[in-house]
Amino acid sequence: MGSRVLRVSESEIAERVSEIAKTISLDYRGRELIVVGVLKGAFVFLADLVRKLTIPVVLDFIQVASYGASMTSSGTISLKLPISMDVKGKDVLLVEDIVDTGGTIRFLLDHILSLGAASVAVCAMIDKPERRKVEVPVRYVCLRVPEGFLVGYGLDHAERYRELPGIYELITDASGENHPE
């Protein structure tokens, strides 16, 4: 039987989200900010983050595909849902669940900049810089969790486990089955 190992508690997450929201609010005070959440993994983090911001923001979403049901990225990134608003001349904050290899964020940064955004900053719930294959700027980082396949707090494996309140490492049993307990 597989198991899960708690890596970050619900209270630790809440504390870091509040700290990052304060920093973002100070950095963008007096400016118009478009916050773009990367679906689906960032939706829980995004909801908590925007509720802690003390500045007005406009919210939009984008969705790409690179993982599918696998525990590793396919390396091929495709745009599934484009941004619905005009970002030309605007400051954009791209909110992502995990930045690991950098490929998805590089794709998204290039895409949003090609739409004419004045600036694009990345806010990641989890940063795994040791897995980088493509260097990308991650301006705001809530947590650095260096190893393991993570689920919970919006993070999934094959669309499962998003509902877990903390962040867990998914451990597979001898049969390859994943069983967070």
Rank of each mutant, 00 (worst) to 15 (best):
M85E: 10
I55M: 07
S74K: 05
V92H: 00
P82I: 13
K40Q: 09
T23G: 00
G30P: 12
D27S: 09
L94F: 06
R29L: 12
I55L: 12
I62N: 03
C123I: 03
A117F: 01
V58C: 14
I105G: 03
S114V: 05
L93Y: 07
I112T: 03
V35G: 08
L109M: 11
A124W: 00
S70H: 14
E135M: 01
S78C: 02
P56N: 14
V64P: 00
V50Y: 09
R132P: 08
K128D: 04
I105M: 12
S78L: 05
D27V: 04
C123Q: 05
D127L: 01
K88L: 07
I98A: 13
L108H: 02
D48C: 08
R132D: 10
G89I: 12
R51L: 11
I62K: 00
M71N: 14
L59N: 07
F43K: 04
L33A: 04
L93C: 12
A118M: 02
K52P: 07
S114C: 07
S84W: 01
A21T: 09
V38E: 11
Y28S: 10
A118S: 10
S18R: 12
A47M: 11
V64R: 00
I55Q: 08
A121L: 01
V44G: 03
G41V: 13
R131P: 06
S119H: 04
S25E: 09
Y28H: 13
R31G: 02
A117E: 01
I34C: 08
D100C: 04
A117I: 02
L81V: 15
Y67G: 09
V122S: 09
P82S: 15
A47Y: 14
V122E: 12
G41N: 14
S25N: 06
D60F: 07
V57T: 15
V44W: 07
L108F: 01
V120E: 08
K52W: 09
V58E: 15
G37K: 04
K22R: 10
V95T: 08
G75V: 13
G116Y: 07
L115N: 07
R106S: 14
A21E: 11
S70G: 14
R51P: 11
I34S: 03
D27E: 12
R29H: 11
K133P: 04
A121H: 10
K88I: 02
F43G: 07
L79V: 05
D100F: 04
I112N: 00
L113Q: 13
V136E: 11
G75H: 12
L33C: 09
L109K: 09
Y67W: 14
V87T: 09
G68P: 10
